[in-house]
Design a protein around this nucleic acid. Structure first.
Length: 727
DNA sequence: GTTTATCGTATTTTT
DNA sequence: TACGATAAAC
């Protein structure tokens, strides 16, 4: 594919750009903000800009830094730049914030008190570590859960704050317990274990730049051109980092879209993009508003929706290939009785798309939250339609894989206590809580690693004979594996480990459903290791690139969360679950922050703008949540879509406004106030009939939500539009 | 001392 | 439902 594109006229990639895009590519000097709406060719601008810089010989490839948020985006950029400029693209610094920071940190670990081979912890390890610290120090934390405390610590790190710099105001309701103390202890522990967490990668890197002028100058001199993708998603720490590193040449090009900012919960600050012009003197702003992706109808829907947000810079997307006669299909809006019917309907629409000649790979189902994928998976399996869930439990996060990785980590480092704790009794070898406690206490007293502590204790009679024997065997294995560390390939080493500890046999004995799948995963894992020369380089890859290699095999429907969908596009998009409390998510409604709802709306905007041709939105009146029936109102976002471009189909038997006539259904009917007017007279005590639950009496009324005591089904909450007066 | 069973509770999004 | 913490059984 390289050859094919390289054979084009050298200027081709430049000439296909529209004037604004071209301006963004050619304005190489000085700070530049590119406000790039959905589908306006953002990636094309970024890649062309890099190609332009290289082609004009403005800098060497290794003097260009391009940062993205996801590994996927980084990979794509690498590929597309490579398509234009060829193999020199390999020496450009392209990567995620985290991987670039890790690369720099690996060069200067000592400056922040780390050793060369520090380990990057994942969330699981972070949480376990924090729990341990809470226990060890007997912290009184007022019933705040470790999870909450962990996210607070991450929050501080996102802001670029070390424990000693956290201002009192930031502690919020956590100020009643000494969280900063905990944070500080957590950092100490990480350092003593020679570990970092995700937030540290950036924070340490930032601190290196702050405290070591020569190092900073080194990188400032190096990077003549800096490009940032998805700038609206940067947090304070990343913002400060960028400011420092770009200070010398000031050739900083940030590309982003405030309407697609959906990561504030992870510390992202839209403000970064809103204040770009103030922050960087003599900066230029270019707006990309020509959308090459979606039909006019889809854009109209998306624009109407997003115009309900107040905090935005404001952009008007127009369809680049617009033409008054061809507005594209209307959006399909489907209301159904319950979640199951929604899934059945969705699958049947997929089948119909397929018979009309659409590839399954042109179809995506975008959900608000991970748990929603299950229902669709089931129905796809029944219909024998191939699908793939992205962003589900990721390969390296599977338990069995994590176990083996923990073994590898222990082989590499004697000091990796977290990994050691994970595997000391996995598979079960009779080493339980009390033995572990002894090892821990001993290690704390003497300041040695758990593994060293175990070795020391084995010299004594502290353990029972059986325990002693088992633990000793494990340690003997480790010293053997370490001998092989440099002589054999990582794949061979893993196979040896799996065999020595009898992992496969244990899985085989366990006759549970997924044990075969786990064995397959292990095989797959050792196969994937064949691409790596050293265990260490592989471990780094694992912690930074959590995704499994995406197999671009065949033809399948994509199922993923709206968050994961950002940056991708499909001909046909399904957006199920548009109900209050599901989407917008309840958590965002509970939150007092005004911005929370606006972020949900941006998420809806992202969803709509993924589609090239056709959008299907659906909602279910009832849903089973944790084995309980719950009735939901249609999402408020539905009433923000223009009526004239919707094809509305409600299921037979779903009553809206007391009428079964679907043609008279109007979106504004969803508006609660208007809705109240044409409903039947309901009051407490009245006997009613409900399609699914039968007869019952109303016990209370809350707007149009009714609590009804059914004669057979018990007490349920039901939407008033779904009840009838008995004949 | 270790493993298994039961109970109760909290449920987003991800580098 | 699914996981984690605690209680009973091996």
């Amino acid at each position: 594919m390289l050859i094919d594109i390289k054979n084009r006229q050298p200027k081709d990639w430049l000439n296909i750009l529209n004037p604004e895009q071209r301006d963004a590519v050619e304005t190489t000097e000085g700070p530049l903000l590119v406000l790039s709406g959905a589908g306006t060719g953002k990636t094309r601008v970024l890649t062309s800009r890099i190609a332009f810089i290289l082609e004009r010989n403005l800098s060497k490839p290794w003097e260009v830094l391009a940062v993205t948020f996801t590994n996927r985006a980084a990979k794509e950029m690498q590929l597309r730049v490579g398509n234009i400029v060829g193999s020199v693209a390999d020496s450009i610094w392209i990567g995620t914030f985290h991987s670039i920071a890790a690369k720099i940190l690996r060069k200067y670990p000592k400056l922040v008190g780390l050793e060369n081979d520090f380990t990057i912890l994942d969330q699981d390890d972070q949480l376990r570590l924090l729990k341990q610290i809470i226990e060890d120090n007997r912290f009184d934390l007022n019933n705040f859960s470790p999870k909450i405390l962990m996210s607070w610590i991450q929050f501080c790190k996102d802001k670029g704050l070390a424990p000693e710099n956290v201002p009192f105001e930031m502690m919020g309701e956590l100020s009643i317990c000494n969280v900063t103390d905990l944070y500080s202890k957590y950092q100490d522990k990480l350092r003593s274990l020679n570990c970092v967490d995700f937030g540290d990668l950036l924070l340490h890197c930032l601190n290196i730049f702050r405290d070591n002028e020569e190092v900073l100058r080194n990188y400032q001199d190096k990077f003549k051109y800096i490009l940032v993708d998805e700038y609206q998603d940067t947090n304070v720490c990343q913002y400060l980092w960028l400011r420092l590193i770009s200070q010398k040449y000031r050739n900083l090009c940030c590309v982003g879209d405030d309407d697609q900012s959906i990561y504030s919960w992870r510390g992202a600050e839209v403000e970064n993009i809103l204040r770009f012009e103030n922050d960087y003197e003599n900066s230029k702003v270019i707006r990309l508003e020509r959308n090459y992706r979606s039909t006019p109808n889809i854009l109209y829907a998306a624009s109407s929706l997003i115009s309900n947000n107040k905090e935005r810079l404001g952009k008007n997307l127009t369809a680049a290939n617009s033409n008054d006669h061809e507005k594209g299909d209307k959006l399909t809006l489907r209301g159904v009785w319950d979640g199951e019917q929604e899934a059945l309907w969705l699958v049947s629409e997929v089948e119909s798309l397929q018979t009309r000649g659409n590839l399954l790979s042109s179809i995506a189902v975008l959900v608000r939250a991970g748990y929603q994928t299950l229902e669709f998976e089931e129905k796809f399996i029944n219909a024998a339609i191939p699908y793939r869930v992205f962003g589900g439990p990721r390969f390296y996060e599977r338990l069995e894989i994590k176990d083996i990785i923990a073994y590898l980590r222990c082989v590499c480092s004697d000091r990796d206590d977290l990994a050691f704790e994970r595997i000391i009794n996995k598979p079960k070898r009779g080493i339980g809580e009390s033995t572990l406690k002894k090892i821990r206490t001993n290690s704390r007293v003497y300041g040695v690693s758990l593994m060293q502590s175990s070795r020391d204790l084995l010299e004594t009679d502290e353990f029972r004979p059986q325990t002693k024997k088992n633990l000793n065997l494990l340690l003997v294995f480790f010293s053997e594996w370490r001998k092989n560390l440099n002589s054999s390939t990582p794949a061979d080493l893993v196979n040896k480990i799996i065999e020595d500890i009898g992992y496969i046999e244990i899985l085989q004995k366990d006759s549970s459903q997924d044990s075969q799948g786990r064995i397959d995963n292990l095989r797959e894992f050792s196969r994937s290791l064949e691409d790596w020369d050293t265990v260490k380089s592989f471990l780094d890859h694992v912690s930074l690139v959590m995704e499994n290699e995406v197999k671009l095999t065949n033809n399948f429907v994509t199922i993923m969360t709206l968050h994961a969908a950002k940056g991708s596009e499909f001909d046909n998009i399904f957006l199920p679950g548009w109900e209050e409390d599901v989407f917008p998510h309840r958590r965002s409604l509970d939150e007092k922050r005004v911005g929370a709802l606006e972020e949900e709306r941006r998420l809806a905007y992202v969803g709509l703008t993924r589609a090239r041709k056709k959008v299907y939105i659906s909602y279910a009146a009832n849903r089973r949540v944790y084995n309980q029936w719950q009735s939901n109102l249609p999402s408020r976002f539905l009433s923000e879509l223009p009526n004239e471009i919707l094809d509305i189909i409600t299921e037979t038997g779903v009553f809206i406004g007391g009428k079964q006539d679907s043609s008279s259904f109007n979106i504004s009917d969803l508006d609660q106030d208007k809705y109240q007017k044409n409903k039947i007279n309901l009051s407490v005590g009245i006997r009613i009939f409900h399609q699914k639950f039968g007869y019952g009496k109303i016990i209370s009324i809350d707007n149009n939500k009714l609590s009804i005591k059914f004669e057979k089904a018990g007490t349920k909450k039901v939407l008033s539009s779904f009840v009838e007066l008995p004949p």
